[in-house]
Design a protein around this nucleic acid. Structure first.
Length: 287
DNA sequence: TTTCACAGGCGTCAGCGGTA
DNA sequence: TACCGCTGACGCCTGTGAAA
């Protein structure tokens, strides 16, 4: 069977594949899922040549990726004769206008029309499973950006607002979008949209805080010392609140990642089952 | 009941990056 | 350049469950 002739095997990502980092776990699962999706789509198009090429490409990438991180996972040698350049019959896809790679290796593709596609290291090209569309029209709060999220497995498109001030630059955009994606995965999985607030930076002082006089109005060393003490207490109080908020966000983020892992593992299992079924159908009966 | 290990939360400090 | 917010790291405190 070509399956085994090409030293390919399919298995669900196991715990040993992960180094314990939750984000890495999510990325590895997405990687598997993306590649499985490509393989499945090839299966459905009944092109065995295409299947072999794509499967080899996908799994060499997966195994080589794992072999660099996980001891005991063998590398698959490059087969330049087949893989160099774009094979003439290999699937073609719409190429977005702009592709960026972040410092974490994620690919961000911005297509015409504003759709943002997120792909991960090890996935093939820019065929991301997530798509985000950002627009600034309509009637959202002033300065806000509408973010539409659509996943292949989601029933419908979710929509929510992100304050304009939260749209920052470079990797922070990626982090922000990834959190939104994780959040929407849960929403898509549970079928409802939980309450979620991106809080605007507070400008009001907490109760009990008294604004100090300007330094120019202080004269004696005692007044200067009191001013320094007030400033320190104010700074400590603000930092205390910031630390609480930071921990709350971190817990929420970890919960999102854990939920997403659960959802992706279920989806992976279904994809593998579907793949096994199609494999039996497509395999020669003599094998 | 007491002791101990562990987890989780909190306050603080330090360092980094963004901003005016 | 000073200021500010965010976050990792550290130490402390408290609650909890298991073992003696």
């Amino acid at each position: 069977m070509w399956w085994h002739q090409h030293n390919l095997c399919f298995r669900h990502p196991i715990e040993e594949d992960y180094s314990g980092d939750l984000e890495e776990k999510v990325n590895i699962i997405i990687m598997y899922q993306t590649d499985l999706s490509i393989i499945l789509s090839c299966f459905k198009s009944h092109s065995n040549i295409l299947i072999i090429s794509v499967v080899k490409l996908c799994f060499r990438k997966i195994l080589n990726e794992l072999s660099s991180d996980v001891p005991g996972v063998p590398k698959i040698e490059e087969e330049k004769s087949e893989e160099e350049g774009t094979p003439p019959n290999i699937a073609t896809m719409a190429v977005p206008t702009s592709i960026y790679q972040t410092s974490t290796g994620q690919y961000i593709a911005i297509a015409q029309g504003g759709t943002i596609q997120i792909s991960n290291p090890g996935s093939d090209g820019v065929q991301g499973l997530q798509a985000l569309t950002m627009t600034n029209s309509g009637a959202p709060p002033p300065g806000a950006t509408i973010v539409q999220y659509a996943a292949q497995s989601a029933d419908g498109t979710q929509q929510f607002f992100v304050p304009g001030s939260q749209v920052v630059v470079q990797d922070q955009v990626v982090n922000c979008l990834y959190k939104l994606v994780a959040f929407c995965f849960i929403a898509a999985a549970t079928g409802d949209m939980p309450t979620y607030q991106i809080r605007a930076p507070t400008t009001a002082l907490p109760q009990g805080v008294v604004m100090a006089a300007s330094p120019g109005s202080l004269h004696s060393p005692q007044q200067l010392a009191e001013e320094a003490t007030r400033k320190r207490e104010l700074r400590l109080m603000k930092n205390r609140e910031a630390a609480k908020e930071c921990r709350r966000r971190k817990k929420e983020y970890v919960k999102c990642l854990e939920s997403r892992v659960a959802v992706l593992e279920v989806q992976n299992k279904k994809l593998i089952e579907e793949l096994e079924t199609l494999k039996d159908i497509c395999s020669p009966k003599t094998d």
